[in-house]
Amino acid sequence: MIWLEPVPDALTPQSLEIQASILNSQPEFNLMVLHKAYVEPSELEEENRNNLAMGEKMLYIRSHDRIAGLITYLPDYSADHYPWIGLLVIHRQYSRQGIGIAAIHELEQMFRTQGLGAVRLAVQLENKAGEAFWTRNGFTPVRRAADNHNNEVDVYEKQFK
């Protein structure tokens, strides 16, 4: 069983430790996005502050009462007024178990319940696994851009029916 749980405070030491543990279990992803394999919890604090100021929401992905991953999203990105998924990362220990797919379905259902018609996200050009995952889950590329880490990305969108 998979469910999404709002992170009560993304800035507490405990929460920052959990986030770093999840991210550091996927060093290849960190290299693509952050240009380094591992991050310290303290390094996440400033980015979290900036993202929370923009209205970002953070959710733990729970599987059988364990935190298996993390999702962040902006309900309304001011540049285009779409909701944006900022991050979906599954702890390596829980990879390849269908948790990411189940989490995306839960998030999409939440968006539909809120009356949203679409969602967007960015995928780093070298992230072929991410590209395949999002494409398999109904997302299509709409344009090329740069992310907040100055990585070249493809912007993907999924319309809800």
Rank of each mutant, 00 (worst) to 15 (best):
H105W: 07
E108H: 03
I101P: 02
H81A: 08
H81F: 07
L88E: 07
E126M: 07
L107H: 03
H81C: 08
E126P: 06
Q93H: 12
Y82L: 11
A102M: 06
Q124T: 13
E126S: 03
Q124H: 14
V89F: 12
R96I: 09
A102G: 03
I99V: 03
L121E: 03
A103C: 11
H91N: 08
I101E: 15
S95D: 15
G100Q: 09
V123N: 08
E126W: 04
I85W: 00
V123D: 02
Q93T: 13
H105N: 10
G98R: 01
Q109H: 15
G98V: 05
Q124D: 13
Q109C: 11
H91E: 08
Q97P: 11
L88I: 12
L88T: 11
N127M: 09
L116A: 06
R112S: 04
Y94L: 10
Q93E: 13
Q124S: 14
L116Q: 09
I104V: 08
W84S: 09
R120V: 05
A103I: 05
M110Y: 07
L107F: 07
I85D: 00
G86K: 05
Q114C: 06
Y82F: 15
I99W: 04
Q114K: 11
G100P: 02
E126N: 08
G117K: 15
L88D: 04
Q124I: 13
H81Y: 13
Q93M: 13
V119A: 03
I90H: 07
G117T: 13
Q114W: 03
H105Y: 10
T113L: 12
Y94R: 04
Q97A: 14
L125G: 06
Y82C: 15
I101G: 13
Q93G: 10
M110F: 06
V119M: 04
W84G: 11
V119Q: 05
F111L: 09
A122R: 03
Y82D: 12
Q97S: 14
A102F: 07
V119W: 07
W84K: 12
S95H: 14
Y82N: 15
S95N: 15
H105R: 12
Q114R: 09
H81M: 09
G100T: 09
V123W: 01
T113S: 10
L121H: 08
Q109V: 05
L87P: 13
R92H: 13
A103M: 01
Y94T: 05
G98I: 05
G100E: 03
G115N: 03
E108A: 01
S95P: 00
Q93L: 14
F111W: 06
I85P: 10
I85M: 11
N127W: 00
L116E: 09
V89H: 10
I99N: 01
H105A: 14
R92V: 09
P83K: 01
W84Q: 10
H91V: 06
V89P: 10
V123S: 01
Q109F: 04
E106D: 04
R92W: 11
Y94P: 08
R96Y: 07
T113H: 10
G115V: 00
Q93R: 12
I101R: 14
Y82H: 15
T113R: 11
L125M: 14
Y82P: 02
L121K: 02
L88N: 07
R112K: 11
R120S: 01
I85R: 07
A118V: 02
E126Y: 09
Q109E: 15
E108D: 08
M110P: 00
Q97T: 10
N127E: 00
N127V: 05
Q124W: 10
M110N: 00
V123M: 06
E106C: 10
L107V: 02
I90N: 04
I90T: 09
